[in-house]
Design a protein around this nucleic acid. Structure first.
Length: 253
DNA sequence: AAGATGCGCAACCGCAATCGT
DNA sequence: CACGATTGCGGTTGCGCATCT
């Protein structure tokens, strides 16, 4: 299955190789990585080409020191998502997953551990909050997702399902019972008009989210995390909706 | 001055998910 | 549904440079 060609070049890239790769992607676009070595004539494996592009050559990659707000964001997102570097990087414009991971491993990890130790001493007696991190799900517009047949998508911590019911009913669904859920519902309703090409409707029911999403774009990703206290009660939750453009996913809300 | 050590970053590797047939 | 091919992700390694002894 896996083929390793000992003739393939490894190690640092030269300027010539960079130029070949850049030209090829500018001409043919990103993707189809398996064709890149043939198209460029590079004696590199497709994964090496992909990595070089995504981590170094791609336009808009931000270089240099992380700014304070970026560092703050990385710490918060890592707290929420764990080592999901690609998700974290997706929220920090210009930074790659490798950048974030390296920055974390070389600078932030020790700092955060030390600060956590300090804060644990300060907050003795405060219950530990467990964050459940379901994997993001990606839905294509095809088949059952758009107003189609019943679909059930299960995540470890939340459920999303879509079925053929009247949207008006969905909009007038009773607001969630918990305070956090009610706040979310309010915010969601308020944001509706701002959602350019996708809309989401939903309400909290116990520990699950019932939602329906009409995807007018080619792909939409829903990501969510429930935050529970020691008793297992949901105290807040975070859900992100992503529209996939041709290239990098951009948050819509 | 030269070897040792530490650090940052780019790149590689293995694995799992997804896609296509 | 099964299976191979491809892609994406995160962990790890290794190189080059800076600093220390």
């Amino acid at each position: 299955m896996k083929t390793t060609n000992p003739e393939l070049k490894k190690g640092a890239w030269t300027e010539e190789e960079d130029a070949l790769l850049r030209n090829c992607i500018e001409r043919h676009g990103e993707g189809k990585w398996h064709l890149i070595p043939f198209r460029t004539g590079l004696n590199r494996c497709r994964r090496s080409c992909r990595l070089r592009w995504l981590n170094y050559l791609k336009p808009n990659i931000k270089r240099g020191e992380f700014e304070d707000d970026e560092v703050d964001l990385v710490i918060r997102l890592h707290n929420l998502l764990g080592n999901r570097w690609s998700l974290i990087a997706g929220r920090i414009p210009g930074r790659t997953a490798n950048d974030v991971k390296n920055y974390w491993n070389t600078r932030l990890a020790r700092k955060v551990v030390a600060e956590n130790k300090k804060s644990r001493c300060r907050t003795k007696g405060v219950p530990i909050v467990k964050v459940i991190k379901p994997h993001p799900r990606t839905f294509s517009r095809t088949a059952s997702w758009v107003r189609g047949t019943a679909t059930l998508i299960t995540c470890p911590a939340l459920r999303l399902y879509n079925h053929d019911i009247n949207l008006e009913d969905k909009c007038t669904s009773p607001p969630p019972e918990t305070e956090a859920g009610a706040a979310w519902w309010e915010g969601l309703s308020g944001d509706m008009a701002d959602l350019d090409r996708a809309h989401t409707f939903g309400c909290l029911q116990g520990v699950s989210l019932v939602g329906e999403l009409l995807a007018e774009t080619s792909k939409t990703t829903v990501e969510g995390s429930l935050v529970r206290d020691d008793e297992g009660d949901v105290i807040s939750f975070d859900i992100d909706l992503w529209q996939h453009s041709d290239t990098t996913p951009q948050p819509v809300a």
